[in-house]
Nucleic acid binder design. Structure first.
Length: 209
DNA sequence: AACACGATGGACT
DNA sequence: GTCCATCGTGTTA
């Protein structure tokens, strides 16, 4: 994937293990219309064998895009209120949840969508991110290509990463997988649960679980 | 047809 | 820290 900074990512970018894609997405840009957001936090969900993933139910009306074309958006409604933006990876039910971001363009529109919210944490959370981007259930299944209304664009590699357990559902992480399932950009305030993240490489610190 | 509950966020003690 | 809005989904009957 010899992609230049600012170019839309090719589908080959997404056709890898969700853990790899989740890590690679940190620092990249998501665009919906005039709004552009830098991705600061992601979380991997790895197919039917992942007991926390929606794919554990197999192909259902809701999860069919999860088993569809690589590099498409999987958007679903959580708690009856919040939309969650995911990127379909290998097509076997795996996906990456985009959990947080920083506004890059379209700040006024983002603020209007987010109500009274202001400041660096305005998109710190999966529901906040989707709301700021103006995404909902009707965007489910759309491609993330340069031709689409939604797209993801390449960026320079981030200086440092934080890693940690998934939020709310660590109970289900396959124990034999040593790698972390959640990734964040080091040094940003746009992260949903900083206290469970640690710098990559160093020993465990902070609260796991 | 009824039911329990969630990959959350905001308000409040 | 606690409470709860709000509804699509999968499960069970």
């Amino acid at each position: 994937m010899a992609t230049k900074v600012g170019e839309p990512l090719p589908s080959s970018f997404y056709a890898r293990d969700a853990l790899v894609v989740a890590r690679a997405l940190i620092g990249k840009f998501v665009r919906h219309g005039p709004v552009i957001v830098r991705i600061t936090e992601t979380e991997a969900y790895r197919g039917p064998s992942d007991s926390a993933a929606h794919a554990r139910f197999g192909i259902t009306p809701r999860t069919q895009t999860l088993f569809g074309p690589v590099g498409h958006a999987y958007v679903y409604l959580c708690y009856g209120l919040h939309s969650m933006l995911n990127v379909v990876t290998t097509g076997d039910g795996s996906a990456v949840l985009i959990r947080a971001g920083e506004p890059v363009a379209g700040l006024a529109l983002i603020q209007r969508r987010r109500g009274a919210q202001r400041g660096p944490a305005i998109l710190a959370g999966p529901g906040k991110l989707a709301q700021g981007l103006g995404l909902g259930r009707d965007h489910d299944g759309l491609p993330l290509s340069g031709q689409s209304v939604i797209s993801v664009h390449d960026a320079l590699p981030p200086a440092g990463l934080l890693v940690g357990p998934r939020v709310g559902i660590d109970y289900a992480a396959p124990k034999h997988v040593r790698a972390p399932w959640r990734f964040a950009l080091a040094g940003t305030k746009a992260v949903s649960r900083p206290q469970t993240l640690r710098p990559e490489g160093r020993g465990t610190s902070g609260r796991e679980h």
